[in-house]
C-alpha cells in the first residue's frame, strides 16, 4: 500500500510542473525542514596517516512549485554519504509532498523513501505534519530585533513500510510501522554574515522514545557565490536504521536558497 501511495505521489508530482507556475530549486543540507535546507550542503575530507583520503557528503536538493493559491508541491532528494561513514550510517532519501497554509497552521502531507548505504534497509513512509504559522515570541521571527534568534516547532505522524523485511540486519521498525515525531528548528543570525542553524528531532518509534533523537547543527560563514566555510555537528540516531552517530566536521559548504534572491 505504501509503495502504491508513493508511486501515486510521484506520478502526481511528475504531472504537476506541466500546469504549475515558476519552479524554485534550493540546495542545502537536507530537505526535512526549512531550517535543515538552510544549513549548507557540506563536503568534508578526512586525511589520516597510512589511510586513503576519506570524504563525507551531506546534501539535499528541493524543488517547489505552486498548487493553487495557498498550497504548493515540493519534491527533493538527499544524501548523507561518503567513504568516511560506514554503509549502515549512510542515508539516501527522496520526498514528494504538498503543503497548504491554513492559517493558523501550515499542514503538509507527503511520502518519503529512505534507505541505508547498501540498500539493505529500504522504507517508504507517508507523513502528515503541521506547524503553527505564528504565536509565541520568536516563533518564525526574531525574538527581538536585537536577539536575532528564531525557532519553529513541528509535529508529525508517519505510517510506513519496510520494503525488505527479510534484510540481513535487524531493524527497530517492523514491516509496517507507525512513527510519531516532534521537531524543533532554530536559527541564530547575528549581525554580520555568519549564521547558525540547528534542527532537533525526536521520534516515537513503535512506542519507544528512548534513543531515537537526532540533532544536527551547522555554523556557516559565507565566502562567495553560495560557498561557505562550514562547521557542522550531528549526534543521535536517525532513520532509517536509527544507528548511533556522533561527529563534528569542518569543511566547505554550499547553499542556494529556495527562492529568487
Amino acid at each position: 500500500m505504501i509503495r502504491l501511495a508513493l508511486l501515486a505521489l510521484v506520478a502526481i508530482l511528475a504531472a504537476t510542473p506541466a500546469f504549475a507556475g515558476t519552479v524554485e530549486v534550493g540546495v542545502g543540507h537536507s530537505y526535512s525542514s526549512a531550517s535543515a535546507l538552510a544549513q549548507p550542503a557540506t563536503l568534508v575530507l578526512v586525511a589520516e596517516e597510512d589511510a586513503p583520503l576519506l570524504a563525507r557528503l551531506d546534501a539535499g536538493v528541493l524543488a517547489r512549485g505552486p498548487l493553487g493559491h495557498l498550497a504548493a508541491w515540493e519534491t527533493g532528494i538527499r544524501a548523507a554519504t561518503g567513504s568516511a561513514r560506514p554503509a549502515s550510517r549512510r542515508v539516501y532519501g527522496a520526498v514528494a509532498r504538498g503543503w497548504r497554509a491554513t492559517d493558523p497552521l501550515l499542514v503538509a502531507f507527503g511520502g518519503e523513501y529512505e534507505a541505508d548505504g547498501d540498500f539493505e534497509v529500504e522504507k517508504g513512509v507517508l507523513n502528515l505534519e503541521a506547524s503553527p504559522l505564528r504565536g509565541a515570541p520568536g516563533l518564525g521571527r526574531w525574538v527581538t530585533p536585537r536577539v536575532r534568534l528564531r525557532w519553529r516547532p513541528w509535529i508529525g505522524l508517519g505510517y510506513g513500510n519496510a520494503f525488505d523485511a527479510g534484510a540481513a540486519r535487524a531493524d527497530v521498525e517492523s514491516k509496517n510501522f507507525w512513527r510519531a515525531y516532534a521537531r524543533v528548528e532554530a536559527s541564530y543570525q547575528p549581525r554580520g554574515r555568519a549564521r547558525c542553524d540547528v534542527e532537533a528531532t525526536s521520534w516515537l518509534v513503535n512506542g519507544d522514545i528512548r534513543g531515537t533523537n537526532y540533532l544536527k547543527a551547522a555554523l556557516a560563514v559565507p565566502i562567495a557565490g553560495g560557498l561557505s566555510l562550514s562547521a557542522d555537528l550531528a549526534a543521535g540516531r536517525q532513520p532509517p536504521r536509527f544507528e548511533r552517530e556522533r561527529r563534528v566536521g569542518l569543511g566547505l559548504g554550499f547553499y542556494r536558497p529556495l527562492r529568487s534572491d
Binding site: 515558476t22 517547489r64 512549485g65 493559491h69 492559517d103 504559522l133 505564528r134 518564525g140 529556495l258 527562492r259
Partner: peptide
C-alpha cells in the same frame, strides 16, 4: 522565516479582498 511570511495571506484577504499566492509570497 518562510512560513511566518504566509501569516500575511489571511489578513490581506480580509482587508483587501485579494487572494495572494503562497509561493509568490515565498519566492
Amino acid at each position: 522565516d518562510d512560513w511566518f511570511k504566509l501569516s500575511v495571506l489571511k489578513p490581506v484577504r480580509k482587508r483587501f479582498h485579494e487572494s495572494l499566492s503562497a509561493t509568490v509570497m515565498l519566492d
